[in-house]
Design a protein around this nucleic acid. Sequence first.
DNA 1: GCAAGGTC
Length: 866
Amino acid sequence: MAANKVIMVAEKPSIALSIASVLSHGQMSTRKASTDVHEFEGMFLGFHVHFKVTSVIGHVFSVDFPEKYQNWTTTDPLDLFQAPIQKTEANPKAHIRRHLSQEARGYGNLVLWLDCDREGENICFEVMDCIGHSNETRRRIYRARFSSVTEKDILKAMDNLVEPNKDEALSVDARQEIDLKVGVAFTRFQTSFFQGKYGNLDSRVISYGPCQTPTLGFCVQRYLQINTFKPEKFWAVRPYIMQKGYELQLEWERNKLFDYDVAVMFQKLVMEDGILEVTEIVEKQESKSRPSGLNTVNLLKVASSALGFGPQMAMQVAERLYTQGFISYPRTESTAYPSSFDFRGTLGAQVNNPTWGSYVQKLLADGYQKPRSGTDVGDHPPVTPLRSATEDMLGNDAWRLYEYICTHFIGTVSPDCKYVRTRVEFSIGGEFFHCVGHRVLVKGFTSIMPWLAVTEKNLPQFKKGEKIEVSQVDLHEGMTSPPDFLSESELISLMEKNGIGTDASISVHINNICERNYVQVLAGRKLGPTALGITLIRGYQCIDPDLCLPDIRSFIEQQITLVAKGQADHFRVVQHVLQQFRQKYSYFVKQIENMDALFEAQFSPLADSGRVLSKCGKCLRYMKHISSQPSRLYCNTCEEVYYLPQKGSIKLYKELTCPLDNFELLIFSMPGPDGKSFPLCPYCYNSPPFEGIDTLFGAVKSGPSSQLGKGAGMPCFLCPHPTCRHSLIAQGVCACPECSGTLVLDPVSAPKWRLCCNMCNFLVLLPEGAHQISTTRERCPECDSTILEVDFNKKTTPLENGETLYTGCILCDELLHSLVEMKYGKSFFKRMGGRGRGRGSRRGGYRGRGRGTGKKVDPKMSFRDF
DNA sequence: GCAAGGTC
């Protein structure tokens, strides 16, 4: 390990770039890899060294259960609490692990520049895991602690390197394990329980999570408040006066009364007196403070309430503004600027902006204010503009968010708003009334943030002791009204207050409960819970209210904080918390009938749901199509559910039946005007090897129909056999020797590349190591089937000299002399001859009855024989 | 098909 080589790893590419720029004074060379790598020479701990700076992209790993526990039907969710867990690369395609280990080779020092929070600390250990940090490597490990990516902070961190904090990292491991086990166990159980029971449950997955469920809880709590609200009538005495030409309505000190007779009595007293006396005039200068720096939560709240953007969209737009360099990093909890913040420079960038440039110029000339102190969590500075932009440059949505970020920033360094508040008090008939006026002295920040302006209200002149005649005394009748549905912005506040989610994940949880159909976003971005959302929360409330209370998150947080502080052992804390949740889970399962009673009242059983569509092949009675998600067929007689492809329409297909199972065929059409259609048999679709076939076909599942034909999206076929109308989604590559049906890639064994006949399940095993298969235009002279080309992975091919291509007919077991010889010359067969086992030899997986073509062929080579 | 947390 070279001691004069230092590798530094940041949490994301942009931070690596900033660190490298500062430490190299811009004199570094940059190379593209999984994430950019910057290299330069410099001083480290008093030595001249070679530096390399690169980054991860957030967490390198995520946790999940091993394969064995992935099957929903064979795994009891209760077992998940004790199941092992494994870490796998969060984004395997990014190859971060390989990247880090390669780049760190030969580097004797590692400096970890991950964000300074628990997650960052955890990623430190992920990085160490990737590059190896065992004793043998003898690499020195350092942790840089910094609260912003400014030159000052970076240099300070370099001078004060510490060790990574194992306890904090372990607390994140604990959270990950607890969240995974609890979330997945409850989700699998309640999904399986309710989905197989009710037809009009409009949800594919009925999820549970220690963040998402309390989030839903807030929305339902407000709904229940509204629902149980009893409006009440109230009355208020409202005297009017004419003063110096102004008509003025006075406010009652008692505000309102809920007893009509008493209110009438007071009205009479006031009317009988008829003369108001001015008892007090209080004039006071007040001020409205400029805002403190903008953090993510406040950005999301404004985006929702003022711009009408949902949190998910707001974050997407902010992310784009950030990557384009218009604003600073948008995920931060801090509302205080770091002491080193360059206000003059940030303002200076806006002086030529056509919208607020002149205001900024004036602010710079008159002297901007020091911002109000806020909280500095030590993560990132508040969200601020970097480059100036116009609406034309950004487009409408991004502009509106950018405009807010700019005006908010300018507001934070503008003067406070100052105004005079005048309160005039009156007495009449023993009752007291008042009126309030506002006169603005200094608009301050409200001139750039006009929606926060103090509204001017002029009052006519009064003198203390002055007597004024009442012009009219009304008895106003009103009705108390329920609160409105929880607004998204209120929900964000509640989540923040209760520690549900983080700046980066709050928007995800809100989006989750919308996508799972627990709440709907109504006009004005109010969140209205659906029947499913309400029933779930009411169910938890009657079985175990803890399950939907925000305390469940605080409990986990508090427990893992013990680990983070080194006050408790990681393993014991995890065991303790899981033990508690396991008990809660068992009790929940035992009591599920109580929740089910609520579901029964709200949803209809499968038998009563859906429309009659097609005949069951077993009982020959009609089955019902349940169109709500997940789309499926239900046979009332057999009590069987047959799942269908999702997100499309389904109809009866020509009243044809499947020759294999007698189920009536259906035709599925994907959404959209040019949505493709394909026929299918509901029974085969749910049976191996076709089970879940749509998961293989990205385009069917999620992509627009235009993607069909590319990659995983494949065209659809009916078996060409005259008596076989069996159907499937597949790529037809060859004819079946048994029935001439289409041979298709078998989805179960993919990517092992078995071929399977759609009609008779005749399976053809292709050579192992084949990693691509394609059709040629050639036909087999023996059986007239399409000739396939199989491409081998060089590592596994038995061929010598790197030959990687076969051409042949899989049906006659024949490699075609002419074709292969044409391509590779005669020596090809010699080389291959020794490996053949001849026709008829079979290997596992081949289930065909093997009629073959009846013709002997040479040489003794077979695709099946591999 | 499942959680929550990073980041893109």
